[in-house]
């Protein structure tokens, strides 16, 4: 299941989305998430869908690749849906079994909630799939740059993030290897009760931590050997500057959010008409 997480994995392709400045993508992702929470009614979700589909199409990332990321969170999704389905009380009862009942309002909330979550994951996956972790951290560093004045170690945070992203796949592979090696020694990670299962993790976690520390140590040494000494006096191989397409993209994103806000406002007035 760990392998299915697409969040944080880069999908190389040549698309307009890939070429956008990471700051634009970060801001747009945030705007999109806000828009999902602003959205009300079918019209709002329709616009959100169109926007998302357009971005996915333009990104040239295969759709199957994106949906793979959903597998990892399917449990959370199910729980949310079920929770909303049974807990939200509406007027029209659609189904009843003992104390369990589903109402029209519950169904609607559940469906919208599921859509909201799915879109949220797809939206952020698109950002990470089309932006190299380095770009992403560069973008974050630059966006959060003003915080340096209040002594927030922005460069360091960005560097930590980028290293974490680089080592996630390596550590996942390592987990798999150690798990197999211990299985070959008769370890059993699957059966038993919760306590037994937790105990069975020790032979996996101890070597994994040791390896992570060893890697951290090696990497720190390698970085120092290549003259890394923090953010001061550092130049950038890929400095960020906005192109005209970035400005356009900003326009589109803000325009989109505005549209969503208007729709949601209109919903307040003509609620019934727009559902």
């Amino acid at each position: 299941m760990l392998r299915d997480i697409t969040l944080g994995q880069y999908y190389p392709a040549k698309s307009i989305i890939h070429q956008l400045d990471p700051r634009v993508k970060l801001v747009t992702t945030i705007l999109y998430i806000i828009s999902l929470f602003v959205a009300k009614g079918i019209a709002g979700y329709a616009v959100a869908t169109v926007f998302l589909v357009m971005v996915v199409k333009m990104s040239k990332v295969p759709f199957r690749y994106i949906t793979k990321g959903l597998k990892a969170v399917i449990m959370i999704l199910m729980i949310t849906v079920i929770f909303n389905l049974f807990m939200v009380n509406g007027e029209v009862e659609l189904w009843r079994f003992g104390f369990l009942r589903i109402t029209d309002k519950g169904l609607r909330t559940a469906v919208f909630m599921a859509i909201r979550l799915i879109y949220l994951i797809i939206g952020s996956s698109i950002m990470t799939l089309t932006t190299t972790p380095n770009d992403l951290t560069d973008g974050l560093e630059k966006l959060l740059g003003p915080l340096k004045k209040v002594r927030v170690p922005v460069h360091e945070i960005a560097m930590i993030m980028s290293i974490a992203l680089r080592f996630i796949p390596i550590l996942l592979e390592e987990t798999d290897k150690i798990m197999k090696a211990q299985t070959a020694r008769g370890a059993d990670f699957e059966s038993g009760n919760l306590i037994q299962k937790a105990k069975a993790m020790v032979p996996l976690l101890v070597p994994l931590f040791i390896s992570a520390f060893r890697r951290a140590n090696d990497l720190a040494m390698a970085m120092e050997a290549r003259c890394y000494h923090g953010g001061d006096g550092r130049t950038k191989m890929k400095p960020l500057h906005y192109e005209s397409r970035d400005k356009m993209a900003y326009g589109v994103s803000w325009g989109y959010l505005l549209l969503m806000a208007v729709l949601s406002f209109a919903q307040g007035f003509y609620g019934v008409m727009l559902l």
């Binding site: 880069y10 190299t132 972790p133 380095n134 980028s162 290293i163 992203l165 680089r166 390596i170 060893r214 890697r215 090696d218 990497l219 390698a222 970085m223 290549r226 003259c227 890394y228 000494h229 006096g233 550092r234 130049t235 950038k236 191989m237 890929k238 400095p239």
Partner: peptide, 25 residues
Amino acid sequence: PDNQIIGTVVEEDVGFGPENLGVPT
């Protein structure tokens, strides 16, 4: 080999040293 590559893309990793030295872009 795994524990000394910092960049997530080959060229970015090669650029890491010069970046630290303050070499112009």
